[in-house]
Design a binder for these strands. Structure first.
Lengths: 154, 154
DNA sequence: TTAATTGGGTACCATTTTAGTCCTGTATAA
DNA sequence: TTATACAGGACTAAAATGGTACCCAATTAA
């Protein structure tokens, strides 16, 4: 399925919720309530996001979480790697030279290029885009196909 | 990590191996030997690839597997979905209307667009590209960033 | 200064997914 | 007819994932 883990999904939803009210400080319990998810799980996600430097936390009464930087400077790739680690399609596209099958594999280089393309795409989508209620109007279909065509003809 | 499962990885390697010798019929054991992976596991992936219509199998002596269609007409997305099911980043980007959190989520639409962009990208990479020994010269970085910029400014 | 609030960290358990193995059946070619 | 090779399914082991509980630390307000 090449899908995000459920926690990553939660993280995105929670980040979007915070991004829609950037001034306020958000308690974990309030966020859990707002997005209708179990408190401890949301809490866990929030901690990971803090550790990744995407959220800032304030302890004590009236404390809570807020964005560490503007939503336009937080990317989908940031959120994904905060929860799942670096975006990479295969083992060898992250740690180079650790695959003993490299000799017989023969597709590693090309997978890495595909990985890079996906990473670049995810870095181009910001939290501001995700949180926007009106759908992103990325003209994805035509331009990306034109990329592939130019690659084929090259 | 947003990574492919190991079986998908194997599938790509095996498909590439077959694609490099399109005339021959490849026995499962030979393929396993060639790519240095356990026979039964390779066998399993081969069966999945047949079921997905990417490979044709021939039983009996001198039998084996060969591509069901030219390598240029088999995409990375085909291989991935043969093993993992449809490419989709979130639960709700495949089966619509089955997420009871849709009301509080607020990011579903945009994730679906990102999913679509990735799927389109993966459909633009063919087995012929993957199997090529010379790396794909996809001009990924510039064009994709230009897409994102146009989306931001739109 | 004390109590209430709120995040931080850790350890643990249940579930699901993934990977790998084995066995038996069936088709084909020599 | 026999050796070869794929087909299908059941089963098991291991790992990742998701969720819970518990207790500690920091901050604020009464």
């Amino acid at each position: 399925m090449l899908k995000l883990s459920r926690l990553t999904d939660y993280a995105a939803v929670v980040m979007a919720q915070i991004a829609r009210h950037p001034q306020a400080s958000h308690a974990a319990a309030d966020l859990a309530e707002a997005v209708q998810l179990p408190h401890p799980t949301v809490s866990k996600t929030l901690k990971m996001l803090v550790r990744a430097g995407l959220l800032a936390s304030q302890r004590g009464a009236q404390g809570g979480y807020r964005l560490a930087r503007p939503a336009s400077q937080i990317t989908a790739a940031d959120i994904i790697s905060a929860i799942e680690g670096p975006v990479a399609m295969t083992e060898c596209s992250q740690a180079q030279g650790e695959c003993e099958l490299a000799a017989t594999c023969g597709v590693a280089d090309n997978w890495q290029r595909v990985s890079l393309a996906i990473r670049t795409l995810l870095e181009s989508v910001t939290l501001a885009h995700l949180a926007a209620s009106s759908p992103l109007k990325l003209p994805v279909q035509l331009p990306i196909q034109s990329i592939s065509l130019s690659a084929v003809s090259a």
